[in-house]
Structure formats: structure tokens, C-alpha cells
Design a protein around this nucleic acid. Structure first.
Lengths: 342, 342
DNA sequence: GGTGACATTGTTAGCGCTAACATTCACGCC
DNA sequence: GGCGTGAATGTTAGCGCTAACAATGTCACC
């Protein structure tokens, strides 16, 4: 690398070094045809020699394309959203885009709006919003300055392109599995009411019970965290209202549930069967190994970017093509379920 | 909002609407003094009316400041790095910066270099690299185009500002706790060799044993995942080499270990005591609730950004002020440890 | 040998903004 | 009343790049 004279080299420096006009340098950089091979080589050599890097701001200014996609993510302490983010990142980078990420501490409509505003200020070309909650979905402004918006994990979104896992189908599978084992009915520890995923799982649970003609009880609502699974099951034990089978809306609460059952001297799966949701890496090592429903989060992220890129390419103003892609869930059978004791 | 005539309004439109020059608009936007209050109000009204948003590329072009910080993260499926990222994001946004994130699938020096190159192309002003592995640290180019670089979770980094949790101290606490309970020695299931955190925990474990004059065995190296904890403990059981106390380098492997012990009919904590590391949210609900060492990842992220901002403000070319901040670890005692059976 | 077609390169004009300098105006003071 | 002073505003010149057009050269073909 030639020592730069104090400042970073610009296109004109490269042009001078290669003995061409700056426009020719630009052409080489942008892979235009009609540049003589020999000229191109000389320019490339000069670029390498000077350690030149095109200025993205200048380019963005004239092309009106920043190459940045904005991502609004909920607090990534949850397993699912974190994985989804990874999927989004890889897909975006593979397509040559940059990712600007904002994480929300709390899923209020206000925070979503503020986050998208923050991103808009950076002139992102499009948005991917990880929107597992109703309030996030509702906080999303319809018209993001003409930039397309895709919701992932968004369940039945509004007039928005959406990618999500088939939560309801997954829940159905879980409940059918339990019913198939001979359980008369299945109790449900649900996720928070505001969460679309929680809602869909409740719907799947209810649907599967109804189609089997099984009695449908009241779901108990937790907050996804282990503690709430623990406490809800404890309350069930204390009220002596424990069903023989339990469908818990995520693996974290399922751990809490398992713990509460163990403390109460209830054996799993002998006395009570438990199914979780998510298939976190630890699920296979819980006591007992947890039967659960796996979601392919990475795929969700990938497809979200896929839709966004299509929208960007086609120049559609979002909405219109309110695509809705559903990634199937997959049942993972381990040792936490058995036929009911009679 | 006034209907824009097809294109987004620019500063000149605002100027026209407010009856001032574009420069005055710029002054209002940048909070310059010497603007009459009445003029400012008129400009602000026009901005609001037209729905004007400054063009960040144009501004960046002339100020040479993009307001973007690049973050290189390892695959955020791990609990720690994911939380750290959240901490970084909030701190950066609070300071008015944007975050451009790249996640690595594999922690090779090549990928790190490529990631930083990707970010450099976007003209980031500085870098935060989540570098829990030696290979990440080594892949980091020293001179990132004059932009400062801060490593977080980086252990003893090179000539780089670093923020990390006191891994060694945390490990020492864990081992001392076990020793204090009366165990003759403590076995160690370590993390992968390439990880600085794993290495530091081994060092802490060894140090605590040595200072107590306890026999030091060979640590067993896992890969952080539950499965490896499970398999390593199984091998211990099969070789009949199970110590009475086990310090496992993270909670995920600890879950695997607990499972292996349960399957072997070994009671925890009666027969064997176990301490983990991380304090994941589930840890309190394992069977038994896991004694572990908590790390404040959010704080690590926050301090990382803090250092970077200082560097950015002072205009230092990184390196020089090779700060090194250590966040203390905290022991969380639960039910997985007891005095050894005699 | 002239001519059109096409490949290759250069020249010019902005993109939307801020920095630097220029201008205007109001005011206080000798 | 003239004049310095400083606040408030306007004018001009780029930042580094790409798009559009202009200019040149090259070649095939009649």
C-alpha cells in the first residue's frame, strides 16, 4: 500500500495513479462493460496499491440506495428471536446488504415507532420487524416512507408480508400426540396474552381438543419465563387440579413446570406427561428429556429477507403483495410423555 | 403532512416553505446559536409540515461522520454473546449511534477479517468485536483504517481496549465454594480450548485448587453444548473416575452433566456437587436448581460502547489507551452443592 | 476511401448537505 | 451622525460519487 498523504485516497487519486478519468474508475468498480481489460487491470492495480475504498455515503447520495436494511428486534434474550436475527443477518449479508439493528426493551407501540424512526433517519431501504407480539405489529406504521416492511414471527399480520412458523399446527401436533397416548384431555400453560405465538398455540391446543371431542379447560397464562411455569404448575398441584397431560407453550416454562412437578413428587412421564415448544438445545437433557415442538428460526429469518429483497427489486410499495409464508413446525419426541396411569 | 410532489422533500423545500435559506434550515437542524427564535419556529413548522427528514448520506459525505458503529458478533445462539449484543445496542443508540451488525458462523480469523472489511465498506466510525475466542482476537486487524476497535469478552487481548467479565475470579469463587464445603478436590468440565473464557476458567479452577493444596486433575474439554457435558460425565462415570465435586464451565454443559448423573443413579448434591457458569434464566429450575456463577453481560456491552465513544471523542487512534475493564462475576448459590458424603 | 456502428474513454452536472465567508441590519457610543 | 460590533441570515464552494452525454478511436463493409 502506498502511504496515503494524510487523508484517505479518493476516486480521483486512483484515476490519477492509473492514468484514466475518475469515471473509468467508477466503471471498473461497478462492473460496467466496455472497459478494456488492460485498463481495468491498471485501475484495479491502482486501487490495490493505494488501498482505496469507495465512500459509501457519496455513492448512496447519488444512487439513492444505502444498501442498509433496518431490523427491529425484541429483546434477544429469548431463544427464538435471537436465532431469527442470525438468520436475517446471514441472508442479508449474502445479498450484499448491511444490517442496522435496533432492539426493543419493551414491546410497546411507542417503542416500535421510535425504533423505526431511528432507522428511517439512517435511510434504510427496507425493514424487517421481528414482531411476535400484537403490540409490536400494531405499532408498526403502515407507510414507512415508501420502504417495504416485512414482519417475521408475526402470525396473522395486517396488510403486511409475513413469515412465521406454523404455531397453531405445531400446537395441534403436540396435543394430538398427547391425546393419542390415551390422555382424556390436555392442560395448557400458555404464553402471555399479548403474544401472537402464544395465542396461536392456544388456538391449536383448543382446536385439537375440540376435534377430538375432549374437554377443554382454561389455559393458564405465563410470561415465557421458567418461574411462571413453575408457579402455575404449583398452583395446579395445590388446587389438586393437575391434568394427566400438560402442553406448555415454551421450553423455558416447561423447565419450570418439570421442576414444580418434581418437587411435588409427581413423576414425569409416569404420572403426568409434558410437551414443550421451541426445542432449545438443552431440551434433550432435561429431566426427563423433553418432548417438544421444534421451530426453524433461521429459516424464518432467511425467508423474511427473501421477501424483502423481492419487494426491493420489484419496487413494490410493500403491502400489495401481502405474502404470507408459513414454515412448518416439527414434533420432537423424547421421554416426557407416556400413556396415562389408570 | 403536505403531500410531497412525488419525491421526498429536501432541505431546499423546507427553506422555501419557511421563507429562509437552506443554510438557516441546516442551522436549526444542528442546533446552532444565532438563529432567531421566531425563525427557528417557522423552520421547525415547515419541517414538520413537509415531513422532512435530513438525508444521512449527504450529511455523512460532508461531515465525514456516518454515526455508525460496526459490531462483529459470534453466533448469537449462545446466551452470553446475545445478551452482550443487547447491551451494546442500547448504549449505542442512547448515544445517538447506529449499529451495523455482522454475525460470524465460525470464529476463524478469516471470517473476522471479512466481517470487518464488510463493515469498513460502510464507513463505520468504530468497531466493537465480541471476541470470546482466541481466533477472533487474532483475526482482528490492528489498524482498522484509523477507526478505533474495542474487544468485549476478550480476556487478555493484545494491544486493544478490552472489556470482560472476571472469568478467572468467578471460577476461583466456584471452586473455593466447593472446597469450603469439604470436598477434597474438584473436577472440571471445561469449554473449548480456543475460547479465552474457557481458558480463564481453567486457570481459575487450577489456581483455587493449588492455593488450597488440593490435587489438580486433568480438565475435560467440552464444546459448551449440553451434549458434551452429558458425554464427558458419562465417560467419567464409566471410568469410575467421578470426583465428589464438579465445576462445569457453563450452564448448558451443566445441564448435560446433571442428566448424565441422574441416569447413572448418582444423586446431586448428595453424591456429587455441581457448579455451573453463566446463570441462565433456567438455572434456578434445573433438577436440582443449579449453583452457578453469574455474569453481567449487559454491563459488558455497555462498557464496551463507553470505551469506544471515549476513543471516538478523544480522536485517539485506538491502541494507545489500551484500557482493560473487568466486570466482576457473582456467585449464585442454589441447591446443587453439599458437603461430600463420607 | 468514406461511412456508419460500436466500443472505449472523457467531461460535465448534479445528489443534499455543511463549512466558510459575505452580507445585512440593529444598536450603542463617541 | 458616523462607525465599530455582533447577531442573524444569505451565498458560495465543495464533500466523493454516478448518470448522462460528448468525444474519440476502431473496425467492417460497400
Amino acid at each position: 500500500m502506498a502511504a496515503p498523504p494524510g487523508r484517505m485516497p479518493v476516486m480521483a487519486d486512483v484515476a490519477r495513479a492509473a492514468g484514466v478519468s475518475h469515471q473509468t474508475v467508477s466503471r471498473v468498480l461497478n462492473g460496467h462493460p466496455n472497459v478494456r481489460a488492460e485498463t481495468q487491470a491498471r485501475v484495479l492495480a491502482a486501487i490495490d496499491d493505494l488501498g482505496y475504498r469507495p465512500n459509501s455515503s457519496a455513492r448512496a447520495l447519488v444512487t439513492r440506495r444505502t444498501g442498509v436494511i433496518g431490523v427491529v428486534a425484541v429483546d434477544t434474550a429469548h431463544y427464538g428471536p435471537a436465532r431469527t436475527l442470525t438468520g436475517i443477518e446471514h441472508a442479508a449479508r449474502a445479498a450484499g446488504y448491511y444490517l442496522s439493528v435496533v432492539t426493543l426493551t419493551e414491546a410497546s407501540a411507542g417503542q416500535v415507532r421510535e425504533a423505526m424512526d431511528h432507522l428511517a433517519r439512517q435511510s434504510v431501504e427496507g425493514y424487517v420487524v421481528i414482531a411476535p407480539q400484537r403490540s409490536v405489529l400494531e405499532g408498526m406504521p403502515e407507510w414507512a416512507g415508501g420502504a417495504p416492511v416485512v414482519a417475521v414471527e408475526g402470525g396473522e399480520a395486517r396488510e403486511l408480508p409475513v413469515v412465521c412458523v406454523d404455531q397453531e399446527g405445531g400446537a395441534r401436533m403436540a396435543v394430538r400426540h398427547l391425546l393419542g397416548l390415551g390422555h382424556r384431555t390436555v392442560g395448557h400453560i400458555a404464553g402471555p396474552r399479548d403474544w401472537l405465538e402464544a395465542e396461536a398455540r392456544v388456538a391449536g391446543w383448543r382446536g385439537a381438543l375440540e376435534e377430538a371431542g375432549a374437554p377443554v379447560g382454561e389455559p393458564l397464562f405465563g410470561d415465557w419465563r421458567p418461574r411462571s411455569g413453575y408457579e402455575l404448575v404449583r398452583s395446579l398441584v395445590e388446587r389438586d387440579a393437575l391434568p394427566t397431560a400438560l402442553f406448555v407453550a415454551n421450553d423455558q416454562m416447561a423447565v419450570g413446570a418439570l421442576r414444580a412437578l418434581a418437587e411435588a413428587g409427581v413423576r414425569v412421564p409416569d404420572d403426568v406427561s409434558v410437551v414443550g415448544f421451541d426445542d432449545v438445545p438443552e431440551a434433550a437433557y432435561y429431566s426427563p428429556p423433553l418432548t417438544t415442538v421444534a421451530q426453524d428460526f433461521t429459516e424464518v429469518g432467511r425467508r423474511g429477507i427473501g421477501i424483502l429483497l423481492d419487494l426491493l427489486d420489484s419496487g413494490e410499495p410493500a403491502a400489495e403483495s401481502a405474502a404470507r409464508e408459513v414454515v412448518p413446525a416439527r414434533m420432537v419426541v423424547r421421554a416426557s410423555c407416556a400413556a396415562p396411569a389408570r
